[in-house]
Amino acid sequence: MLYEKTSDKFSIIDLSIAAIILFIFLLIIGTHGSPTFWNSILSLTAFQGSNATDWINALGQLATAGAFIIAFSTFHLTKKNERQKLLLEESKLTIKRMEDALAKIDTANSNFENIEFVCVCLSNLATDLEAIYGDITDETYKAIVRMHWQNMHFNHLRIAFKNVNFNSVLRNLGVDYREAKNLTKHNTKTPPGINDEYKFYRRALQSSHVAPLLEKRYNDFQNLGHFITSFFDKDKTDDYMHGSMSWLVPEAGVPLVAALSNIYVSNTEKLFKSLASMNKNN
């Protein structure tokens, strides 16, 4: 399967459990078992006086031990598989909740409050999924989760955020959209390779018409960094993206949120530097 990682590893834990069970079973036989069993074993190993009855007794006892081990291993594997299935279903349910949260993005009357609310919900769900997914050991189940996650990311998350009405966002912030749209220059260099939509958002959000209004609301955007990390950071998404040739770039996937997050981080650093400079002068 495209989304499935091949694994030739065997479970050392399962082998250890089987060995412990066999040891305990033999110990019980040795202390409370029938002397016939040990007499048969000694007779067989010495090859003296052994007969068909000795072989049958020894094999019967070993078969009993083997049946017990097989029964316990089957029970253990059944419980393990049941847990894996529960983790799979919970993972799929969590991804469905992500899609439900994305459906709450208001594209008709878009505003920063709504965007921040959805990002917080998605970040919390991403934390839940990370914990659940980390306990899934069955590679086939992991492949299924990857398919659902990639579908959510490319067919729901990206589309939902790109459908945000920026005109409405600025209008609700108190800025006339035409003023931001007409901006053509910016006092900082835009990183190369970033698409025009991200460039436009960053330029507009840092304009003299928008920046003063955003400065009053830094605390409202403090969770955007967590959202960007959860859904675009390579360390967080590399396993989810196995089997896909796509690269997750926030500036391309969620350009408005990426621009807002990058501005918030850069301005926060400037604020700390300013405070440090003031303290030094004092």
Rank of each mutant, 00 (worst) to 15 (best):
V118S: 06
L44G: 02
S91P: 01
Q48L: 08
L44F: 05
L42W: 15
G49A: 03
A126D: 12
L77F: 09
D100V: 14
S34N: 06
D128A: 00
T45H: 07
I56D: 14
D100Y: 09
N57H: 01
S43K: 09
I29L: 08
N57S: 01
E90Y: 00
A103I: 01
G33I: 00
S110D: 12
E116P: 06
M98C: 06
L59H: 10
L125Y: 14
A71N: 08
A52H: 04
D54A: 01
A46Q: 12
L86S: 13
H76E: 14
H76V: 14
A63H: 05
F75T: 02
G60P: 03
K85G: 07
K104N: 09
F68H: 03
L129Q: 02
I132H: 13
L26F: 05
L26W: 00
T31M: 11
I95E: 02
L88R: 02
K79Q: 15
L42V: 13
T94H: 07
T74S: 08
E130N: 05
E82D: 11
L125V: 09
T31W: 13
G60I: 03
H32Y: 08
R83K: 14
F75D: 00
L102C: 15
Q61L: 06
A46S: 13
T78Y: 12
I105A: 09
A58L: 03
V120L: 09
I28H: 06
L93F: 11
I95C: 05
E116S: 15
N51Y: 00
D106A: 00
A65F: 05
I95K: 04
K96V: 02
T36I: 04
I41H: 06
C121T: 14
A126W: 12
T53M: 02
N39Y: 15
N111R: 04
K104P: 04
K96N: 08
I69Y: 00
I41P: 01
N39P: 14
N111K: 05
A71Q: 09
T74D: 02
R83C: 06
H32Q: 07
T64R: 07
N114E: 02
L44Q: 05
L62A: 13
L62W: 11
G33A: 00
T78H: 11
T74R: 03
N39I: 12
E99Y: 01
L93S: 15
R97K: 11
S110G: 13
T64N: 07
F75I: 04
S43D: 07
K92D: 01
C121Q: 15
T94W: 03
T31C: 10
L129P: 03
